[in-house]
Amino acid sequence: MKPFDAITLFSALLFSPLLFGIINRIKAMFAGRNGSPLLQTYFDIFKLFRKNMIYGNSTTLVFQLAPAGILAALIVALLLIPWGPIEAPISFSGDFILLAYLLGLSRFLTVIAALDTGSSFEGMGASREVTFAALGEPTFMLGALLLAIHTGESSLSRIFGSIQLTELHPTGTTITLLVAAWMILLLTENSRIPVDDPNTHLELTMIHEVMVLDTGGPLLGIVTYASAIKIWIFSALISNLVFPHLFEKPAMQTVGVAVGIIFVAVVVGIIESIMGRIRLRNIPKLLVGATALVATGLLMTLAG
């Protein structure tokens, strides 16, 4: 592992909970409140780790160990994410497939842990999670394919390394479409408004939150941290699409990625402030729409 790899990895591990802080701050600003501190997620995680464990009556070892697996899968997935000019610690041809499936592993474990409680609410959340995730999967893959065709490369590091944001068409249009589609994916996968409301208090409408309804103490701490890493992964992907390519010097590009990640969090905050949740039955439409965006980009790349 090269020194830069270590730096990017550790900054991801260290700063990912900050994104929730930023999102909440933006939402507070829109609502005219002061809002919770930027570091609130860290406080929450520390608080949770000091608490006792309470397990549901019917839970087994699956419930207890799943959070560890979720976190492991996501941390390993972080190793595949490049940081602008700095290549990912592990980079190979077709690495985005492994990335998608590592996220799949974390989802599998989340769902399994939810089902282990035997609670009907958690079953409901799990059911929704797998439905929407299955529809989101093609969006990610087609997007990666679009990038691969566009740049002629097949690993994330090299794909992001060879994007040239110089012309409006086809690169500009394609990237814009892709950013829009992956933004929808980010909102879905991380259970944000308009797909899911992370702050809702009605079990019947929740997706992700309801799956961890009975998770508490250190386990909830791990799950919270894991979801911070997950949103970091998606933000980093979107940021890598645009921000490093606005600058010339590698050093500036590196900073650009960080700015981009924060920017994505700000955008998520704004979206959460100005939009409401859409009806559950309309979410598949949104996801098919995201795939349609990518497909349009793909076809226009071919035709143009």
């Binding site: 409006l168 249009t173 076809l299 226009m300 143009g304």
Partner: peptide, 8 residues
């Protein structure tokens, strides 16, 4: 081309 994309 961009307009075409928007039309689509």
């Amino acid at each position: 081309d961009t307009i075409s994309v928007l039309l689509a």
